[in-house]
Computed example of a mutant assay.
Amino acid sequence: MTGPAVAAVLLAKAAFFAGPWERAAPEAGLFRPHDAARVARGRELYRQHCAVCHGAELEGETPDWRSRDEDGFLPGPPHDETGHTWHHPDQVLFDITKYGLAEAANLPDYKTRMPAFADVLDDGEIIAIFSFIKSRWPDDIRERHDAMNMRHHVTIGDGR
């Protein structure tokens, strides 16, 4: 074999063996921020059901979202990287949205204006909304969120 032929064979072997391991790690969790159709549907649903409290650009209801209002309620927090949404595993976010914070967190006396969406959105729609939200986070935040999902064993089920 000549030098160029040997080099071609070595490159082909390297590409074959490196291929699967050089790819980015698969997403962990329920949410699919790289699924364009799901993200587009989630964007639409977010605008209909969430933007009024969490901001059209995921910026939150008010800049001071950590302070309770005069009635003792916290405003809708941002869902972008400045908020705390990405600090929670997918299943927790899903449960809070579907069942409401008080039930999902077992805090019956917690004051919140966040409704439960079990009778409004189906599981796939909730997942689509969070797929949209997660698609807007910077790569490093998504990677940290995926790692958290792996630690909490939140994995893709039936894709709801």
Rank of each mutant, 00 (worst) to 15 (best):
P78W: 02
S131L: 07
S67P: 00
I141V: 15
W86H: 15
H145R: 04
R66K: 13
D119R: 13
D64V: 04
W137G: 15
P115S: 00
V154E: 01
H153L: 15
E143Y: 02
E143P: 02
P78N: 08
G83F: 05
E103S: 09
V154C: 03
P115L: 00
W137C: 12
T82G: 13
H84G: 12
A118D: 14
G72P: 00
F94Q: 11
H88F: 14
M148D: 04
L101H: 11
M114T: 11
A104C: 06
V52S: 15
H87M: 14
W65M: 10
D69P: 07
I126Y: 08
D119I: 03
W137R: 08
H79V: 08
I133S: 01
I96N: 10
H152Q: 13
L74P: 05
I133N: 00
V154G: 01
G76Q: 01
D69S: 05
Q91N: 08
G55W: 00
L58R: 01
Q91V: 11
D64P: 01
H88E: 09
Q91I: 13
A104F: 02
L101R: 15
H152L: 03
E59M: 01
I96L: 14
I141T: 15
L74T: 06
P115H: 00
F73P: 07
C50P: 11
D123E: 14
A102E: 09
N149M: 02
R68M: 01
D64N: 10
E143C: 02
P77E: 06
H152W: 13
G83K: 06
K98M: 14
A104D: 03
G60R: 04
E70Q: 11
M114A: 13
F73R: 03
E61C: 04
L121C: 13
R113V: 02
D80K: 04
A105V: 06
G72Q: 00
G100K: 02
T112R: 09
P77K: 04
A104G: 05
K134D: 11
E125Q: 15
I133K: 00
T62C: 01
R144P: 04
Y99C: 06
E70T: 07
F94D: 10
I127Q: 08
V120M: 07
D90V: 09
E81Q: 15
H87D: 13
G72T: 00
V52R: 14
E61Y: 07
C50Q: 06
D71W: 10
